[in-house]
Design a protein around this nucleic acid. Structure first.
Lengths: 332, 332
DNA sequence: TTGTATGCGTTATCAC
DNA sequence: GTGATAACGCATACAA
């Protein structure tokens, strides 16, 4: 492999000039530049990025912590991250954490060892051993850690849950169940809060037994629906905190020979590509997944550069998508 | 940040000894090791991986080229890659290529510049400018490049397609349509080949007009179904080359008020998590996605180490999963 | 605008 | 088993 030395010799210039030609071409005369470029071609020289990274103390790499890469919503976020990272000259290291704190910390430590310059965390945890001490550039996307000074980009989950609940209320539903995400999750808490708020505004008392917790998987949605649809009086609508669980819930309802939405309305969250093609098509909240990723990467870039952030806690717009899985309450 | 120098001073040993304690502890006496470890803790020393990588000419990183990270099948493969990579001490760089050759080449070049040591390619392209010259350790997973010396792990797509086709034939279907993947794709070609083979074995002539090409998206499946279900005589079964397109096809069939499977049988491929919860549940081919990733990473490891591969073209087992989207032909 | 010289933090070589 | 030291390839401060 040719080194910068070989190029400099062939071009008859110093290594410094070759280096400059590559990284600050405006500081090199047109003529010299040409000479150097010819020599680079001739030698098929490729700068050794390992050496460059070492010398500059930069890896041009960020690590993204994702609880489950196989979740279509997260993978869309990652796609957004990747695209913007590439534009900004960064590579993306994948850290599938399976929600394990231990693995989050392992990956986050890559910043300590200079392997990565910053972290994008898609879960609601602080990925450091010392929870109080944020020791590396980090940004939250989709979810966030409450009360902690970590910049984040998400939707207004409280308002989104309110809007969905109001939609269900407007269809005449009074006994609304919830299939929630993990209880500790910030977005889950926010959405539940918004939901309860709407109920209260409508003069309806929220009942704890109307909530079942899932893990965002289809299976957990089906299981939660089984629990909720066998209490009495049976709810006439279920507000699910993601589309997968809604699809699982619909599946169980159908198995029980309930018609969706005639017997039971079921709503989702995220608007994944399957939502539109579910039977019936899912009423859901559309979240700008790619934009989350893209925006988070831009924010992280600023944090890494030491730039001031315009908004530390960014909210992106969401949209209620009304489809056929929710309908008028025919039961009471 | 403490360096190896600081540790050596505090421990009263040479930097070489500190380095050895970290990377070859068996070459250091118990006593010295303890001294060094105390000093490491004291100074909170973390080896600079950038410097280490530079010195050893290794990045301990592999790059994975994926056409579309948001495809649930690919993300499962990536999960498998990530898990095994972590075990083997490698980090995974994400290269979402959108199927663009240009981006594949860009990412593959990271090996030239030492940023990555090897490549896992999930698409059926050679990620190098010079197609004839394989210039970096590379392994194919799921798909493969035909006639090229790139190690690969996949299922026997020909046999899988045969098995599915035979299943449809056994249900009495004679006019079977195909919703295929991209025409240039190797796995598409293999599956089509297997399909045609089965038809021939059954004495049925394959008709080109019974094939529509999609891009693996739900939308493309719906569109392809629209084309196929409006030719005459209408096929009584559709063999789709992935689950997303099958779900799209089912969606269109229902829209046309056709019953699946009474009027039309539709089969998928991949067995993604949504397959089981589709309505009706999808008959499909289960592929070991995580194992593809895991196995590919192990193979790449061997290639990078210069080890001989036990099998250069590995086939993993698949399974025909019979569900309710395929049924007996009631039409002729 | 260009060249010279230095050093980044680590590992490897070779003495001891 | 341990230490002294060179070297990896590059970017940069400084001199010219």
């Amino acid at each position: 492999m040719a080194t910068i030395r070989d190029v400099s010799r062939l071009a008859g210039v110093s290594v410094a000039t070759v280096s400059r030609t590559l990284t600050k071409p405006d500081k090199v005369s047109q003529k010299t530049r040409e000479k150097v470029n010819v020599a680079i071609k001739e030698t098929n020289y490729k700068p050794d990025i390992l050496a460059r990274n070492f010398r500059t103390r930069k890896s041009s790499t960020v690590v993204v912590l994702v609880p489950d890469i196989a979740n279509p919503f997260f993978s869309r976020v990652i796609r957004g991250i990747e695209q913007t990272a590439q534009k900004l000259g960064y590579a993306v290291l994948l850290g599938d954490t399976q929600g394990l704190r231990e693995r989050e910390i392992t990956y986050a430590k890559m910043v300590d060892t200079s392997q990565a310059e910053g972290i994008i965390q898609l879960d609601c945890h602080i990925p450091f051993e010392d929870q109080e001490n944020i020791t590396a550039p980090v940004v939250n996307a989709c979810d966030c850690v409450r009360g902690i000074e970590i910049p984040s980009v998400q939707i207004d989950n409280i308002s989104a849950a309110k809007e969905m609940t109001e939609h269900l209320l407007s269809l005449g539903h009074k006994n609304i169940a919830v299939i929630s995400g993990p209880e500790q999750s910030t977005i889950t808490q926010d959405r539940l809060f918004g939901h309860i708020n709407s109920l209260n505004d409508a003069g309806i008392t929220f009942k704890t037994e109307n909530v079942a917790y899932g893990d965002y998987s289809i299976q957990s949605g089906a299981k939660a629906a089984e629990k909720l649809l066998n209490i009495s009086p049976s709810p006439t609508a279920i507000f699910c905190m993601n589309d997968e669980m809604a699809i699982g819930a619909i599946h169980y309802a159908k198995k029980k020979r309930l018609s969706v939405p005639d017997d039971i309305s079921i709503s989702g969250f995220d608007n994944i590509s399957f939502a539109e093609y579910s039977d019936p098509p899912l009423t859901t909240i559309s979240q700008p997944a790619e934009e989350f990723g893209s925006f988070a990467m831009s924010m992280l870039f600023d944090v890494m550069k030491g730039n001031e952030l315009e908004e530390k806690y960014k909210l992106l717009p969401f949209e209620l998508i009304k489809r056929k899985s929710t309908g008028i309450n025919n039961h009471d």
